[in-house]
Amino acid sequence: MAKSLEIQDLWVSHDGKMILKGVNLSLPLGEVHALMGPNGAGKSTLGKVIAGDQAYTVERGRVLLNGEDITGLEPDERARKGLFLAFQYPLEVPGVSIANFLRLALKERLGRDVPVTEFYARLQEGLKTLEWDEEVLGRYLNEGFSGGEKKRNEILQLLVLRPQVAILDETDSGLDIDALKVVARGVNSMRGPEFSALVITHYQRLLNYIVPDVVHVMMDGRVVKTGGPELALELEARGYDWLKEEVAHAGGS
């Protein structure tokens, strides 16, 4: 099966501290994978590095998108190749309206001018899926948004830009159960043979609504275990300590 996203032996440092220590991960096209792990495991760092955040230094390894090495590319070049990161903490950009921003982003994503009618058709569809009022489009990007509104706005961007590979970084954190269902519906509406997603989450809760094909667990900068959806349930029931011991034991032998 075609690997849409592949991480090979990725080592990444920040401010002189090694955060990712040899991550390996494969995400085939058409699948949704969950990436779980305790706080500080490096999950969010991995998401940002895949998207091209230059605050981090890649020391070794590669990120491949559809077989192409994108490790050295600018964030916008990666996005134009079909990558999308839903931020854990979306930035507020006062002075830039959502509508203007999204129209420019869509133009870049498609590599052509986008007629207003096509743009609004995409927007309307996204807003409907997310049960959101059109009024939001005139607002400045995330300015004064609640935590839940910011997350919803990330998914709106996902629905408008229709990337091939999406990384959702703790999109569930800070959401009440109703908002969580709405956001999950948005992501699920994207599922299909031409879309894959890496869902980074701390809790199993989101995975009741976005059921993953595969679950990866990260600890201390590495993927230490990969399994089916049942792995998430096991982590929910037993916590991470047993896994830590298992990893320590494996490392010691």
Binding site: G52, A79, V96
Partner: peptide, 21 residues
């Protein structure tokens, strides 16, 4: 970075931020 991650070039992102400023 946020703007660039949506496919907007570095220059266009700076333009947006200056205009916003």
């Amino acid at each position: 970075f946020y703007l660039q991650s949506r496919g907007i070039s570095r220059l266009a992102a700076e333009n947006l931020l200056v205009a916003a400023f």
